[in-house]
Design a protein around this nucleic acid. Structure first.
Lengths: 224, 224
DNA sequence: GGGTCGTATAACCCCTTTATAACCGCGACA
DNA sequence: TGTCGCGGTTATAAAGGGGTTATACGACCC
């Protein structure tokens, strides 16, 4: 699990890096906005921590840039009492924020919560109803059946569906999440991937019980 | 879009309800933990706002109960400085928190952000009388009848009518909104679409009760 | 080199959805 | 009385979405 942290306060950055790496995360540091954008492109982190006040490019700009190419979870760091900043950050697509000063413990709790929300958590296996995902082993287990091995793309697709179990997820969002920006618009990839996934997890792939199509909208995972 | 709000402070609850309903959300209120749990079971809201300090059952207990049966987004309300509470809430599966006091504007921004994260952002808060639109699932529910699946165009048409429930919407505006500029002037498309929609939502499509024609002007949705 | 595996590209079929067109009924109006 | 505009209905053609299958490409491992 890779986390990109951007802050111009060297001491704080070191503290964040220490806290997160202690917890088992791989931390990429950036001292200003411009290098944050570069690191984002080269490292494709799973989560981004952004200070709002930075030289180079502000957290806003970085967040905006990231959002044009990815839906990766973004958490903004802000000083207390700057409500305008907060609203603006959330409007730009940030997923959460944290007011300075914060304790390492709080930071960790929030990062974990955000990763869990995004369905990227790999510590505890994701589950919904009878469907149990193991992102470490790349397997799914349905009910008490034998675990089935999944490929990278299959895993990501199922992660999204499990994270939104019971609700329809639009094809566009799935494409975004599974393939990133490049896959946008390519329905073919998605329908093929869904087909392969059904072969693996459905009892009767031709009449899917769990991975259902919502015509004109997307797909959803039915859990009892 | 249905939001369940639980708080024992009647004034704050009223403020929250006012703010959210102004923004178009349907608000279900609960004054204590026990009734929050009951309401959750009966109403299946799309998002839950929970005060931590409540008589009956604390926000923690309510959150825990909800998490045993659902992954609905949960936002906790807490007083400033109670970091322990915050960490515990996030551990219990809450998705976000808000420290009191907060401004209506902040509340709205956070609720929207949480809905967006949960992938419910497209489900615009659309309901009028007995007509409930779900833009994510592409369905309408009339009263307590079974939800009916809608196509893209049907959904857009009904969205327009629901948004202007009780008022006539001109054919030109409907054409513009549903088809964009290309459809301008083509009455035929509209009357066909209206016909199909009536087949789906009217009890007696030949004598429409809800989707009524306003001769020479357009159509309107009658809600009780 | 020859395998396998995972993914991408493409073509095909079928059914749903949408567009085009014609016909019907009704009231307005000359 | 005839016909014109408007809306409802029905029929049919065209387009699009989704499922399926076949095949090609690249990476990786013998």
């Amino acid at each position: 699990m890779k986390i990109l942290c951007a802050d111009d306060d060297k001491d704080l950055l070191a503290l964040i890096a220490f806290t997160l790496s202690q917890a088992g995360y791989l931390v990429i540091s950036a001292g200003d906005g411009a290098s944050a954008i570069r690191s984002f492109a080269s490292e494709s982190p799973d989560l981004v921590l952004l200070d709002i006040n930075m030289p180079g490019a502000s957290g806003f700009q970085v967040c905006e840039t990231i959002r044009t190419q990815s839906r990766v979870p973004v958490m903004m760091l802000t000083v207390r009492g700057e409500e305008e900043d907060l609203v603006r950050a959330l409007d730009l697509g940030a997923d959460d924020y944290l007011t300075k000063p914060f304790s390492p413990r709080t930071l960790l709790a929030r990062v974990k919560a955000l990763l869990r929300r995004a369905g990227l958590e790999n510590s505890a296996p994701l589950a919904a109803g009878r469907v149990q995902l193991d992102t470490q082993e790349h397997t799914v287990q349905v009910g008490t059946k034998e675990p089935v091995r999944l490929t990278k793309l299959e895993l990501r697709l199922l992660q999204m569906l499990v994270a939104n179990a019971g609700h329809t997820v639009s094809s566009d969002r799935l494409l975004m999440q599974v393939w990133g920006h490049k896959g946008a618009g390519d329905r073919q990839l998605l329908k093929q991937l869904v087909h392969r996934l059904r072969q693996k997890i459905e009892v009767e792939p031709a009449a899917p019980q769990m991975l259902q199509t919502v015509v004109g909208a997307g797909y959803k995972l039915i859990v009892d």
